[in-house]
């Protein structure tokens, strides 16, 4: 009796695993987008409703009045500071435009078109850094679009279904971003880690970098627009016998508590493959 049951259970498990392998291979060849879209159509409204129920209880708890007064004072001071900086920058932009026109220079303009989205969930695995947002292809979102907050880069769209999208966060170990250190103009590549930290690699040994330096996207590789703030250098590791310097970077956006994001919709990633020359066969 027990042996029969055991046999049945093992056979059933093997069947389920076979179904899993079939789905895995179909997903690997990108043939499951409609199936995933159908599940997403069912799950997204449930997710939105549950998120709106739990949000006031656990995620966004009300702030105490004293804290609000302090926050108000800080923000007022910050607004005054930003207003004066805005005036100064407007002057700089005017001067830059004038010089660009004189040089007939096509400038890289950092003004983008955005659509905002709410974060409605995170990856069900605590080891993968994804968030789920409530806008999909019907809202104009496409794969590889950059995602930012007011603080800086958050990640890129990794998957888009009609009503929801998944954002691969910048601190994921699947991410590598070409960046530039603003002060020293040194280029490097920012890698996410399994520990959710950010590590900046391939910085030239002669570059002078220090803690607190701002790291922005460089635009190299064409997968992200240039000059999006990403983080600030926390510590530098530079040894004479190394080929490159390395640095730990703290992201500017709080990636653990993202609630609203903006998707840059007018940026198209450049396809570099046609530019990479292929070797010519000898007999030609």
């Amino acid at each position: 009796m027990y042996r029969n049951k055991l046999q049945t259970n093992v056979i059933l498990s093997a069947t389920i695993i076979a179904i899993g392998i079939l789905l895995l291979s179909l997903s690997y060849s990108q043939s499951l987008s409609k199936f995933k879209g159908a599940i997403s159509r069912i799950m997204t409204p449930l997710q939105v409703n549950i998120y709106s129920l739990v949000e006031p209880l656990f995620i966004n708890q009300p702030i105490a009045p004293e804290e609000l007064v302090n926050l108000n004072a800080t923000l007022t001071a910050e607004t005054a500071l930003l207003r004066s900086e805005n005036i100064r920058l407007s002057e700089a932009v005017y001067e830059r435009d004038m010089l660009a026109a004189l040089l007939n220079y096509t400038k890289l303009d950092n003004v983008h078109t955005y659509i905002s989205a709410n974060v409605i969930g995170k990856d069900t695995s605590s080891f993968l850094q994804y968030v789920i947002i409530d806008i999909g292809t019907t809202g104009g979102v496409q794969r590889d679009m950059p995602v930012v907050t007011d603080a800086g880069l958050v990640g890129i769209i990794n998957e888009a279904t009609p009503r929801a999208s998944k954002v691969l966060l910048v601190n994921s170990d699947q991410m590598a971003v070409n960046v530039r250190i603003q002060n020293s103009r040194a280029d490097g590549v920012l890698f996410g880690q399994a520990s959710k930290d950010l590590r900046l690699r391939y910085i030239a040994l002669d570059a002078t970098i220090s803690a607190g330096d701002l790291v922005v996207t460089s635009g190299l590789g064409g997968s992200l627009p240039a000059n999006i703030p990403v983080g600030a250098i926390a510590s530098v590791r530079s040894r004479a016998y190394d080929v490159f310097q390395e640095a730990e970077v703290l992201p500017l956006a709080n990636l653990d508590k993202i609630e609203i994001v903006m998707i840059i919709t007018d940026f198209t990633a450049t396809e570099l493959n046609p530019l990479i020359s292929t070797p010519v066969p000898d007999d030609l």
């Binding site: 179904i19 789905l23 895995l24 179909l26 995933k36 599940i39 799950m43 969930g121 695995s125």
Partner: peptide, 11 residues
């Protein structure tokens, strides 16, 4: 369905 990994891994 709610993860960024390929379908089937959790199954």
């Amino acid at each position: 369905a709610l993860s960024g990994a390929h379908m089937g891994i959790n199954i």
